[in-house]
Amino acid sequence: MQRIPNAVRTATSSELNTDVVIIGGGLAGLISALELARAGHAVTLVERKTYPFHKVCGEYVSNEVRPYLQTLGIDPTALRAATINRFQVSAPSGRSLYAPLDLGGFGISRYTLDHELYQLGKAAGVQFLLNKQVDDVLVTKDLFIVSTSDRSTGETQTVNSRIVLGAFGKRTKLDKTLDRAFMRQPSPYIGVKYHIKTDFPTDLIALHNFADGYCGMSAIEDDKYCLCYLTTRSNLRQYGTIPAMERAVLCQNPQLKAVFENSEFLYEKPEVINEISFSPKQAVENHILMTGDSAGLITPFCGNGMAMAIHGAKLASGLASRFLKNQLTRLELEQRYQREWSAQFARRLWIGRTVQRLFGKAWLSEITVQALGVCTPALRGIMQQTHGTPIAV
Rank of each mutant, 00 (worst) to 15 (best):
T202L: 13
R237P: 03
Y194H: 00
R184L: 15
H195F: 11
V249C: 05
G213A: 11
C251K: 11
G213I: 12
D223E: 15
Q252V: 07
H208Y: 12
Q185I: 14
G191R: 04
T241R: 11
P201D: 03
M217D: 05
K197P: 12
A181F: 13
M217S: 03
A211I: 12
A244H: 14
K224E: 12
G213H: 10
V192K: 02
Q238Y: 14
L207M: 15
D222P: 10
C215A: 13
D212V: 03
Y225C: 07
I205V: 09
C251F: 05
K224V: 04
C251W: 04
D223M: 13
Q252P: 00
K193T: 02
D203E: 09
E246Q: 09
P201W: 07
M245V: 03
I220T: 08
I196V: 09
P186D: 00
Y239D: 02
A219I: 04
S218Y: 07
V192F: 02
I220P: 07
Y194V: 00
R233F: 14
Y229P: 02
I190G: 14
S234W: 10
P201H: 00
P243N: 06
I190W: 13
Y225S: 00
P186G: 08
Y189H: 06
M217Q: 01
N235R: 04
Q185T: 15
Y189K: 06
P186Y: 05
R233Y: 14
C226T: 10
Q185M: 14
L204N: 04
A211P: 08
E221Q: 00
T198S: 07
D212Y: 09
C226H: 07
M217I: 09
T231P: 00
I220R: 00
I220H: 08
Y194R: 01
D212G: 05
F200N: 08
G213R: 01
T202H: 15
F200T: 07
K193S: 02
P188K: 14
H195R: 10
D222N: 15
D222I: 11
C228E: 05
A181W: 14
S234Y: 12
